[in-house]
């Protein structure tokens, strides 16, 4: 690997980390198309490399969320078991499929995420509202929905509200099924899966947005490895490319976190939805072998 190539890969990874952090989607959804379309990497290699970077970024975010105790470790453990099975399945299927199929599915996912960002710019992993008011400490929330007798209620301190927030996840069985799908998407496409996990926890399980985003990071830090290992063992991860990507994404994500505080979120999301549309078009064109577009 030459210095110039490493530098350009790191710049692309940093851009992925920055955009992913700004949009609250994680870096994978940007890195895979960038590596595939700009650097001409085989899509399996782009997915495998992205998954290793996802483990790093989710672990880093998880460290902060565990420190502030916003993540619900119990809920994360339960959902992570099925998400890990999904990620393993996604990785095994993904490495067996032809690249054209993964490219096409990725293009469709980009299209859907782009539309969602355009229609509902307030939706994202890092911001939003709780669909139902979370209760203050001790008053409880919606009815608990324990799985196998395990209580999944959570409590965290919200500095903005100046109080402890207590909640009890509901519809956990449906959440388990969707978590499996999120894990599958992660292993298949090299994304974290937060794009599915966060809305599922927030809208379906009634987990407040801050706790949902934190818990999602923790789930991803536990489960993405199941897919990453499959790609690594099957020879789809170049450790040097992965190292450059991890460092680039780290730096980019830090920059994105700072920028997110000063830039207008809705406008940013609308602008970047156009970028996602463009990448979706290129990925779909490549999958459909439309040479003039791909």
């Amino acid at each position: 690997m030459t210095f110039t190539y490493a530098l350009s890969l790191a710049a692309a990874a940093a851009a992925g980390g920055l955009v992913g952090s700004l949009l609250g989607l994680g870096g994978g959804i940007v890195i895979v198309p960038l590596y595939s379309l700009v650097f001409g990497m085989p899509v399996h290699v782009a997915v495998g490399t992205s998954l290793v970077a996802v483990v790093a970024t989710a672990s880093s975010a998880s460290t902060a969320y565990l420190g502030s105790r916003v993540a619900n470790v119990r809920l994360a453990l339960v959902l992570a078991v099925v998400a890990a099975v999904g990620a393993l399945g996604g990785g095994l299927v993904g490495t067996s499929l032809k690249s054209v199929f993964i490219t096409g599915v990725f293009g469709l996912v980009l299209l859907v995420v782009g539309v969602l960002m355009l229609v509902r710019p307030e939706a994202g992993a890092g911001e939003g509202r709780s669909p139902r008011p979370a209760s203050r400490a001790g008053t409880g929330g919606a009815s608990d929905s324990p799985v196998g007798g395990l209580s999944l209620a959570g409590t965290y301190f919200d500095p903005a509200a100046g109080a402890h927030v207590t909640y009890r996840p509901r519809s956990v069985r449906a959440g388990l099924a969707l978590s499996f799908l999120a894990g599958g998407a992660s292993g298949l496409l090299g994304i974290g899966g937060g794009v599915v996990q966060v809305p599922v926890m927030n809208l379906l399980l009634g987990v407040p947005m801050k706790a949902a985003a934190a818990t999602s990071s923790h789930i991803i830090s536990l489960t993405a490895v199941a897919g990453a290992v499959v790609y690594l063992v099957r020879g789809y991860v170049d450790p040097f490319v992965a190292a450059v990507t991890i460092i680039g994404v780290f730096l980019g994500a830090r920059g994105g976190t700072h920028l997110a505080r000063v830039l207008p979120g809705r406008s940013i999301k609308r602008v970047f939805s156009l970028v996602l549309f463009y990448m979706a078009l290129r990925m779909l064109a490549r999958a459909l072998d439309l040479g003039f577009l791909s």
Binding site: V55, S59, L222, A224, V225, L232, P239, A242
Partner: peptide
């Protein structure tokens, strides 16, 4: 680099 990747992937376990 391999050791770095191995340590990273061992963290979830």
């Amino acid at each position: 680099v391999l050791a770095g990747v191995a340590v990273l992937l061992a963290l979830p376990v």
